[in-house]
Design a protein around this nucleic acid. Sequence first.
DNA 1: TTTGTGACTTAGTATAGGGTAA
DNA 2: TTACCCTATACTAAGTCACAAA
Length: 675
Amino acid sequence: MKSHSADGKHKREKENGFASPPRIKMETEDNGFHHSPKHEKSVKRQYDDGEAEFKPKKVKVEVEKKAKKRKHEDYYEDEEEEEDVKPKKKTKDKKQETAGGKKKVKKEPEEKWKWWEEERATDGSKWRFLEHKGPVFAPPYEPLPGHVRFYYDGKPFKLATAAEEVATFFAKMLDHEYTTKDVFRKNFFKDWKKEMTSEEKAKLTDLNKCDFNEMNEYFKAQSEARKQMTKDEKLKIKLENERILEEYGFCVMDNHRERIGNFRIEPPGLFRGRGNHPKMGMLKRRIRPQDVIINCSKDSKHPKPPHGSKWKDVRFDNKVTWLASWTENIQGSIKYIMLNPSSRIKGEKDWQKYETARRLKSCVERLRTQYREDWKSKEMRIRQRAVALYFIDKLALRAGNEKEDGETADTVGCCSLRVEHIKVYAELDGQEYVVEFDFLGKDSIRYYNKIPVEKRVFKNLQLFLENKQPEDDLFDRLNTSILNKHLQELMDGLTAKVFRTYNASITLQQQLKELTCADDNDPAKILSYNRANRAVALLCNHQRAPPKTFEKTMQNLQTKIDEKKKQLSSTKKEFKAAKADAKSLHDDKSRKAVETKKKAVQRIEEQLMKLEVQATDREENKQIALGTSKLNYLDPRISVAWCKKYNIPLEKVYNKTQREKFAWAIDMAEDDFEF
DNA sequence: TTTGTGACTTAGTATAGGGTAA
DNA sequence: TTACCCTATACTAAGTCACAAA
């Protein structure tokens, strides 16, 4: 492929050259050149450094030069490529008109922007030009029709709009287990009261006397009606959604039209934390324009707030990647509108992440030697640090920041493990020095594991546990900040989470090597791939609730398999009979019949084996989620290389979205890529 | 040194919608 | 053509980590 495929050549660079940002205001230099409405067709930029070494640290001036150089080209390519998905915009500004003037040939091979072949900014700026239309707000509340009533203590009770809206949030969730939980109900009722008029407040004093059933039925009927809509009605909605996507779903960042990840503001509703969340049921309030901060370039066409409203603020900060933000009322944290994973800004970062992990690969043995040594340290803090690091490395645990208690579910990671989360056994089931982990991690997913550890680790753990209560910290002299500072000293850019990325990717690579048989057919190879992926998901503890229809699905599959088996045996019989015929008749026709039957047997055998593979795959996947590791931990170049090596269509491994996200890897990885 | 904040990545689940079997 | 099933996508919560402020 590319002579300048990046693999292995960039190891030493500071990944994407974003050194820590000297605070330079840039907007003024920016000066609008990005708008340039020229429409010379994108003659793909030729690189002076065609021989490919990606020069990591160009000085800023050079970056600018390049930017200027391509300013007329790129934006319009994107216009072309979007085209088969979206209806072309008719009106709009000058650039679009000029662009629209070009003849579009639909089936023309698309030319995608290869940002990974371009220089990256080194001054800490994330973009030079940013224009967008702002977020889409949740639709206003539509009061219930008169016949849908809320009852209190068995009698209809008319709620004012504010309280009614919040009541509908609860009504919609009635079938959910959440609404039976004490904490949820308590939080809900408290927040609901805040929305009530004084009369309502006086009257409605007991949630148990509130009857939301009629409302619940109404919403169910509505969703049923939506399903029953005619094709035409559905199409109308679809087109409207496409129109909104077209208008609000994209921005222009540095000459390129890029897809926004989440352009809709989160609608109001009841907060549903995960696990045992102390704030479940609280009211997530409606976000209005005056809550929203817009970020764009000064010289762009600023987004207009909805009629009669104002933004909270409009800023021009190109040191960040977000387009809009607001503060959410449950935890007081900030929510952002950002770009899609297929965008340059996300892709660059992703690529960088894997390059950091690959750098860890080249020094991980040194670090392991070091932490082993540290197990013997005289200092408690160093021993703790070393044991924690061992867990992070060996078990791919998360760092484990401290959390404010009472504010969130009680979950932990490595540094925040408590005494109650581990048990140590000098001997267990015939193994020496076993540690048993049992704790809730991110998203309150349980981590349970029993592993034998080295004797020194074991002795250290015993020491850490001495004289402590169950609720005490296991590593009382350690936190993520201390750990990461240490890691930073060991390798530039190293943090705890790099180990997860590294171990996940290296595991995939090893497993693929181990499991793939060149002689297998495609389905078997793909099963091997999925198994390799599964090994990683297991390592990272990526779980999912078994799909509700799991049992049924498996049953259906089994039925199919049984039928296929029957079909196979009868076809085999026919094959035998045909052979017998041919033997006695010796004519062409019967010989042909033998061939036909033979092929039929083969075909059915193949189908059967496909089904069986599918069943195995599914069964093994029951409680394991592959998506998370595939999307966030596995260097996509490993998968691309594997597909190339074994001639497996990439679509078998990555769906469309994933291929878009990993376009950089697909373009640059050859079959010999080594992580 | 500790605490808080902001930006960004990672996470599981709900649901829309497209394909397929009946 | 409809019902069903499954996948892709949308959604948003919950982490990590750097840096600033106290």
